[in-house]
């Protein structure tokens, strides 16, 4: 009963949030001086032409009027037409989303593995120089953002010792027989491992750049959690059975510590996805973030709106899912 009401309230606030996002984006980009239509037409276009196109995109109406029309369309799945690309916004945005999702999920996987590995090392060899080393690495990874990691990776593993590709999502010469935009998933399903490798070759550096700050957060929280767990009686008991310290940590402690830690780092996942905007730009990766920056530079209002709303839905959805997961995992909350 109580939990159902809590969930309903939470979903209601989520809708309020999305509405707030829609209003802010809508107002902010329309306050901008200058007419985006004039910018897209060749110089010397007549006043009439400009007026005609402005009316076509509905930009001659008042801002509240435009908002109502746009919101009405959005609720029916119509996000309008991109001014610079002259295509349906939803089609463009959904076409780019898989690239960003694949990159984010790969980064998330790297962050979890790396974070867990660091936490394991610091716990297994606690109070030795190894733990101090992990703390230093964590401190650096925490205060340096993904933007700088991306550039540092390009310089080192991209240029000085060229191991990985530094731009694009996949080699343009490669023939892709795919029906979806989820290249990585589809290449695996079709067992085209040559393409998988080529994709990974492009994705590994941006993914690592995105993953490093999150890996540090996970390592820090997980380390604290592990250190507490290994003092619990059931872990002590496992140790008396003669298992090795590593096995005890991995088998008995890690399992209990990992899931709560990951729910704690939920908000950080949205930070990671937010980081794709600039990381995609640095690596010329054809995802949503790169598209967003182009849209802002081209003053393509319908496209900007569409992308920002999509990001907002993604973020709000992730936060909602994490809150619900947390409520389910936490018995005190469930029965409270």
């Amino acid at each position: 009963m109580t939990i159902l009401r809590a969930i309903a309230t939470r979903i209601a606030t989520t809708l309020v949030t999305l509405f707030g996002v829609a209003i802010i984006v809508f107002v902010v980009i329309r306050v901008a001086p200058g007419n985006p239509i004039a910018m897209m037409l060749p110089p010397g276009a007549s006043e009439e032409d400009i007026a005609r196109l402005t009316a076509l995109y509905g930009l001659d109406r008042s801002i509240p009027e435009q908002f109502v029309i746009w919101l009405g369309g959005v609720l029916q799945g119509d996000f309008g037409t991109s001014i610079s690309l002259r295509q349906n916004v939803l089609t463009i945005v959904l076409g780019r989303l898989p690239a960003t999702l694949e990159l984010s999920l790969l980064a998330l996987g790297i962050a979890i593995v790396l974070g867990a590995a660091l936490a394991f090392v610091a716990t297994r060899w606690r109070e030795t120089p190894a733990e101090a080393g992990v703390d230093v690495v964590n401190g650096i990874a925490l205060s340096v953002p993904d933007f700088l990691w991306g550039l540092a990776l390009i310089l080192t593993l991209g240029v000085a010792w060229p191991v990985f590709e530094i731009s694009g999502r996949v080699s343009p010469t490669l023939d892709l027989p795919f029906v979806t935009q989820f290249y990585l998933v589809e290449s695996l399903l079709r067992l085209r491992l040559d393409i998988t490798l080529n994709l990974l070759d492009h994705m590994i550096m941006p993914a690592v750049a995105l993953a490093l700050p999150l890996a540090a957060v996970i390592a820090q929280l997980l380390k604290a959690s592990l250190k507490e767990t290994i003092r619990q009686d059931y872990v002590m008991l496992a140790r008396t059975k003669g298992f090795s310290e590593s096995r005890v940590i991995l088998h008995d402690a890690m399992r209990n510590a990992l899931l709560p830690t990951l729910t704690l780092t939920g908000v950080q996942l949205t930070f990671l996805i937010g980081g794709t905007v600039i990381i995609e730009r640095i690596f010329s990766y054809e995802g949503l973030g790169n598209l967003a920056i182009d849209a802002v530079i081209n003053r393509d209002l319908p496209l900007i709106q569409g992308i920002v709303i999509l990001f907002a839905v993604l973020f709000v959805g992730i936060n909602l899912a994490i809150d619900l997961l947390y409520a389910i995992l936490n018995p005190r909350l469930r029965h409270g």
Binding site: T17, I273, G274, T276, A292, I293, V296, V308, F311, F315
Partner: peptide, 11 residues
Amino acid sequence: MAFPPVLFAIL
């Protein structure tokens, strides 16, 4: 929190 901060800044 629903905005990617970098995109927000650029916008």
